Amino acid sequence: MECMPEGRGMVEATLLPDAIIILVNGCNQGAQGFGLATASTLEALIYDPIKAVGQRFSTGSRSTIARLHHSCALLLLDGTLMVAGSNPVQMPVLTPVSNQIPSEDYVTEFRVEIYTPP
């Protein structure tokens, strides 16, 4: 049993060819749907099952894009990850709207990133 360094919901875990797992996207608080997700997680987590218990998780590079529900990470042929996705709102949100629905604090995201694992 291993503990993650932080709580994370709606995470995308991708298995790399060397058995390392990269976890990206999601949030530290809330849940998917109904606009409940807050505190987006921007750092990648790296899980190496070969390392000793307590040393298996490390933190990877940080994105500047919040990707909550309906996000994805896809392993590409060159070993990089294509990371995409946005927030779960009914209509696109082009500017942050601070109101009763926390997920509308995040804009609808159309950009795609390439994450290069270490």
Rank of each mutant, 00 (worst) to 15 (best):
P117F: 08
L94V: 08
I46Q: 01
T59Y: 09
T116S: 03
S71P: 01
Q32G: 13
G35C: 04
C3N: 14
D105H: 12
E113Q: 13
E2L: 06
T108F: 06
C72D: 06
S98Q: 07
E43L: 07
G7L: 07
D78H: 11
V24Y: 02
I114C: 12
R111K: 10
N87Y: 03
H69S: 11
V83S: 00
A19K: 13
R56I: 04
E2V: 12
A84Q: 06
D105E: 06
G60C: 04
R67G: 09
L76G: 04
L23R: 00
S58K: 07
I20K: 15
P49V: 10
H69N: 13
T59N: 07
Y115N: 02
A31Y: 12
E12L: 01
R67E: 11
A19H: 14
A31Q: 08
S61R: 11
G26E: 07
V97A: 11
E12C: 15
A39C: 07
R67C: 09
P102C: 05
G7W: 01
L45M: 12
P92F: 07
E109V: 13
A19N: 15
Q55N: 15
C27A: 15
C3W: 11
L36H: 01
Q100G: 13
L15T: 14
T41H: 03
C27F: 15
F110W: 10
G7M: 09
M91T: 15
N28R: 14
S86Y: 01
R62D: 05
E6G: 02
L77M: 08
P117L: 03
P102Y: 03
V53E: 11
T95Y: 08
G85L: 04
M91Q: 14
P92L: 03
G9K: 02
E113S: 15
M82T: 09
I114N: 01
S58P: 06
V97Q: 12
H69W: 14
M1V: 12
I22D: 00
E43N: 14
L45S: 00
D105N: 14
R56Y: 08
A73F: 04
E6A: 12
I46R: 06
M91S: 13
N25E: 08
N99L: 05
M91L: 05
L15C: 11
P117W: 03
E113W: 02
F34E: 12
S40G: 09
V11M: 10
T95I: 14
